[in-house]
């Protein structure tokens, strides 16, 4: 057991997996000698060489399209999109191709690739270095979408993603890369895809979040605790497949739920959770399902006052939960 940051955990897991399986390659912009703009691939080029750690041109569609082809012919690519904001040129390759390859070939072809991309705001990244893009991809059958919130889960989920036979989008909140530390076992453990986790037990209200918002929900639970409100926190961890059972179990117990996501409110991923709760837990709810989200503006603005205005934080989550608890 050792204490690791998120970025250390991700980097070490990539290296471990590449040692374990020589068909794994990493490709993306600046992933080679530079080791990635966030240093997620630092050291891989020195250890595994330019054949397996490939600096690409600035061509996101190519990064994913070539990864699909390489996967078809026996490799297990782990492409990096430098910022989730820049994944859009590859949207067609991900949604029309990677997601549908298995279905459209009636199970003949598969596409085992893990697309890593840093996402999220709170780091002065402005409109184009802060986006949350998980809703676009979680909508698509054939894709799996993973967002860890601890170094432990980052490691276990990245292992599961790389070893999975289907395309996985692995989104890493860039604000957490170095700000979050935690114990990471040395063992070859995995966290299965499709398993949420109750990260704090409570009885009066459930806070559901993922990524940075899972961390903020824990901080909000601390605030609520001082008010005498016992909040339970569920870390979604894997957006698709979604572990509805764990969320439903929690909400059926507490009767109240705040869904937290950093993305724009309208049509965001948490709206699906709210819909599932409406369908599956209606008889257990003692109040409306409430969302704490980013506002519906086209991006996270740059100035720190404006950015703070955009970002959900523990206080906002606590405020919403407090109000709901009193409903």
């Amino acid at each position: 057991m050792a204490v690791r940051t998120m970025i250390d955990s991700i980097r070490e897991t990539l290296a471990d997996e590449m040692r374990r399986d020589e068909t794994i390659i990493v490709l993306g912009e600046d992933v080679g000698k530079k080791g990635g703009v966030f240093l997620a691939t630092d050291g891989l080029y020195d250890e595994f060489g330019g054949d397996r750690v490939i600096d690409t041109p600035l061509t996101e569609s190519m990064i994913i399209g070539a990864s699909i082809g390489a996967a078809i012919n026996g490799l297990r690519p782990v492409p990096e999109i430098q910022f989730a904001d820049f994944i859009m040129p590859a949207f067609n390759q991900i949604v029309s191709e990677a997601a549908r390859m298995r279905y459209r070939s009636n199970g003949a072809f598969s596409c085992p690739i893990t697309i890593r991309a840093p996402y999220g705001g709170g780091v002065h990244g402005a409109l184009y270095h802060s986006q949350s893009v998980e809703a676009f991809f979680s909508h698509v059958p054939g894709l799996k979408v993973v967002i860890p919130s601890t170094p432990h889960d980052a490691r276990g989920l990245l292992r599961s993603s790389i070893r999975d036979e289907d395309p996985v989008l692995f989104f890493e909140h860039k604000k957490m890369y170095r700000s979050v530390r935690g114990d990471v076992p040395d063992s070859d453990y995995v966290v299965p895809l499709g398993s949420a986790k109750v990260t704090r037990e409570g009885s009066q209200v459930t806070l559901v979040g993922y990524g940075l918002m899972a961390q903020y929900s824990l901080e909000a639970a601390d605030i609520l605790d001082s008010d005498g409100i016992r909040a339970e926190v569920v870390d979604v961890r894997c957006l698709r497949p979604l572990d509805t059972a764990t969320i439903l179990e929690s909400v059926r117990k507490t009767g109240k739920c705040v869904v937290v996501y950093e993305d724009n409110r309208f049509g965001g991923y948490g709206a699906e959770i709210a819909a599932i709760l409406a369908e599956e837990a209606f008889d257990y709810l003692d109040g409306p399902v409430v969302r704490v989200t980013g506002p519906d503006v086209p991006g996270v603005p740059y100035n720190h006052v404006l950015e703070d205005w955009f970002m959900p934080d523990p206080e906002r989550i606590a405020t919403a939960a407090r109000r709901l608890a009193g409903y």
Partner: peptide, 22 residues
């Protein structure tokens, strides 16, 4: 397998060739 959005496959062939080379 062929899809309908045109030209996507040209990148797949490139990736297949990358794997063949490696």
């Amino acid at each position: 397998s062929v899809s309908s959005p045109v030209t996507t496959q040209v990148l797949h062939a490139t990736g297949i060739a990358l794997a063949a080379k490696l």
